[in-house]
Design a protein around this nucleic acid. Structure first.
Lengths: 128, 128
DNA sequence: CTGAAGGATGACGTATACGTCAATCATCAT
DNA sequence: ATGATGATTGACGTATACGTCATCCTTCAG
């Protein structure tokens, strides 16, 4: 149905403040249509915001995220452009795969701590 | 061999600045011994720094990381303490597992973009 | 027509995570 | 003894990512 949103509505939808959304626009991450001076967001803007927020949860800076967003719908009209895109995509894939490895390590360490805590608990509570 | 380090040496070892390491101390993430007024770091401090830096790469704040570090070697002398620890560990495990899911999503999206780019390239370069 | 609600644009403030610089102090070789 | 080297403690500066007004416009119900 291609709903339209004001900043406030979009913000409410996403659990952020309007200020945040306007800030992202200043930073070049969004560029909504305008009805006069009023910002009007559509489903594409909403989708973009989801990507941005996920990027943030993954610990990326807005600058990183901007580059990442530019990978979607990049210009592939010229072979040169595609090569450039591939380079960037693969670089980012490398970053993410490193992050995943580190995440896995951290997860196992925490699980080990959990295991030890559970064991200690069993002992203390006399469940020999 | 239990080497000892000055701030500068430890910083060089880790690829950060001495300022960073001192800053972490102010924030309560490290507390090296002193020889007079001079900070002296050992292998445990080095290991702690590795954990801190990994935490940063995963996008956590220093405050988060401090809490995380406190999970290692937490006081498990009392059942109550263990329960508290388990709660914190499991909370953090939840966070990390969410992050992993989001990371996987992002990875597949990037791989899809990569796939499309490669396909477009094949077409353009006439490799029908 | 008018006033209240909502949106826009600055401008300034704040927390985090350091960088940079100055002044001081301790130590070690010559 | 001394001066260069390296460490310490402030204090201030900076980039990122917003929060918080204040002020101004527009619009729309009554």
């Amino acid at each position: 149905m291609d709903r339209l949103y004001t900043v406030t509505e979009l913000a409410a939808e996403l659990g952020v403040t309007p200020r945040t959304i306007r800030f992202y626009e200043v930073k070049g991450l969004l560029s909504p249509k305008r009805a006069g001076t009023t910002r009007v967001y559509n489903h594409r803007d909403l989708a973009r915001m989801y990507l941005i927020l996920r990027g943030k949860r993954l610990g990326f800076s807005l600058a990183d995220i901007k580059e990442y967003l530019d990978l979607y719908g990049a210009d592939t009209s010229q072979v040169e452009q595609i090569h450039l895109l591939l380079g960037k995509v693969r670089h980012r894939l490398g970053d993410l795969e490193l992050q995943r490895r580190e995440l896995e390590e951290t997860l196992s360490e925490l699980r080990e701590i959990e295991r030890q805590a559970v064991a200690a608990l069993k002992e203390k509570t006399g469940q020999a």
